[in-house]
Write a protein that binds this DNA or RNA. Sequence first.
DNA 1: AACGAATCCAACCGCTCCTCC
DNA 2: AGGAGGAGCGGTTGGATTCGT
Length: 306
Amino acid sequence: MGRSPVSHEVATGVKKGPWTPEEDQKLVEYVEKHGRGSWQRIPALAGLNRCGKSCRLRWTNYLRPDIKRGKFTDDEEKRIVHLHSLLGNKWSSIAAELPGRTDNEIKNYWNTHLKKKLLRMGIDPVTHRPAPANLGLLSGLLSPAGAAGNLSDALKLQVDLAHLLKLQLVQSLLHVLTAGAATPNIDLLHQLTPANPLASSSDLLLQSSTNTLVPNLSTLSQFLSPEYASRSSEPGMEISSTSSFPAAAPPPLVSPCSGANNSEITRPSSDHSDWEDLKLDDLDSDCWKDIIDQMPWPEEILESSL
DNA sequence: AACGAATCCAACCGCTCCTCC
DNA sequence: AGGAGGAGCGGTTGGATTCGT
């Protein structure tokens, strides 16, 4: 496995390629006895003909005692997808949320399994939005030329697209509320609930595990939709404001790098189907103008996906 | 059974970031 | 302030393994 051990003796005499069991043993024994210290000095001190970088990599990706080996569980898969939607290719940050897994392992698993899985589901693994090809198909069917085909299929797809855009709209709303800042836009949050007795700061905001403030989706959802609010309190439907995600967390449809601070996981998650239940039609208050102004319009959403 | 294609994943490379002086 | 050196990160490579014909 890996690279061939032959012809990797560079001019410096430092060995490259796969590690032998003897080398592994030397490194493990040294680190267990003396701790990590300086990786640059470890090869000489441990009696290894390797560069420090190679030792660090071998230790962190393979020899570390707390490494969990074996297949990824469904829960781990979901968490990787969810975290990737928030953080992008920040493999070390993703690995930090999955005890026992290394960034290299997660990266490999993403590239070999999860990326393909998402593509099969029609989701773009980069943006976590529906794949461009699907959107193109849908928008094509909505045009007069496209509607010339099977009408019921076209109507069904039109409904799907409407759901899709509504979903994107709500995701964008949350993005505006949480985007790129340690604190959400408190003014907008208050405008959301002008006549709502619940609308105190403590009701609207929660403190996350990273000590940043995030919108309290439970309160907001009561304003948005009583039906949603009741469902979100059901077991398994709780909205989390911490970095511990619900088991059924879907891949959000927002871009992972669209202005949000990647170092902080502050965006709450919820179940896909719940978003579709949101009743945007019920909302006719002027307070939405500011929020809508900050959102990408559907055309822009489509353009950015195509 | 034999062969080529596809897939997997450990390890390397080059770059950036951080710390120290 | 800025240069040097070390640590860490993300992307890529390529041999081993598995799959398909």
